[in-house]
Design a protein around this nucleic acid. Sequence first.
DNA 1: CATTACGTTTACGTTAACGTAAAGTTGCCG
DNA 2: CGGCAACTTTACGTTAACGTAAACGTAATG
Lengths: 125, 125
Amino acid sequence: MKQTYSISELAKEFGVTTRTIRFYEEKGYLAPRREGTRRIYRQADRTQLRLILRGKRLGLSLDDTAEMIQMYGSPQGNRKQLEIFVSRIEEKRAELERKRRDLEVMLNDLQSVEEKCHMVLAEIR
Amino acid sequence: MKQTYSISELAKEFGVTTRTIRFYEEKGYLAPRREGTRRIYRQADRTQLRLILRGKRLGLSLDDTAEMIQMYGSPQGNRKQLEIFVSRIEEKRAELERKRRDLEVMLNDLQSVEEKCHMVLAEIR
DNA sequence: CATTACGTTTACGTTAACGTAAAGTTGCCG
DNA sequence: CGGCAACTTTACGTTAACGTAAACGTAATG
């Protein structure tokens, strides 16, 4: 289990370009250490990148994803702030739940199409 | 149950702008009838729009979504073609399954954060 | 008949998320 | 020491998915 990674190692591992990784840093979503001018990524950076890419796959904007990642920290603030926070979490959850329903429907549709195909194929023979 | 809709009715119903709907038509993903110059949308168009927006919510590109919608038709072609078709379906399914796993994880994470919040809130009182 | 509401086409503008190219630095290998 | 491989910064380019504005048509309403 490696401790640190170069930018191209990370790029390779996650199937993105180095430009993409630098772009995320440029936007403030990654902050690797430096060794001279070289970027050094640690486990935490790697995790951060994984979370960003996960959000991306789900069609979230970088900003939205970053907001979600923020939420993963331990909850702080007074009662009022916490309640606001909870309601923001609820919003995100509602959005994700909707995506999940959409996903279920699409998967069902695909499956039934595939079954149809198999039936037609079985008949051809 | 209405038979036809104007563009702004559809826009309102789905929470998009008329520009968006015209854009989809411009790209060939919608083809409403005309009454003079006015666009008239029927149930099939409405369904088509719903499917497009569903794909969008899941972060699919318009092209990808259109490809999926295409698949919903009844399967055609000879054996070879059908087998290729099935494997394309499988690819889509794999992609969607991955999204689903991503979603599950994010939802779990959000839930546990929310629980933490409630615990902190309970302690504050 | 003027205004208001809704529709149309045409066309240029905008934003997010990178791609791509140029030009330079660093470290190691033969 | 020459050269390649991997890294760097800077900066302009690109694409999808619309936004926005102008300029016009039509039809119902006060």
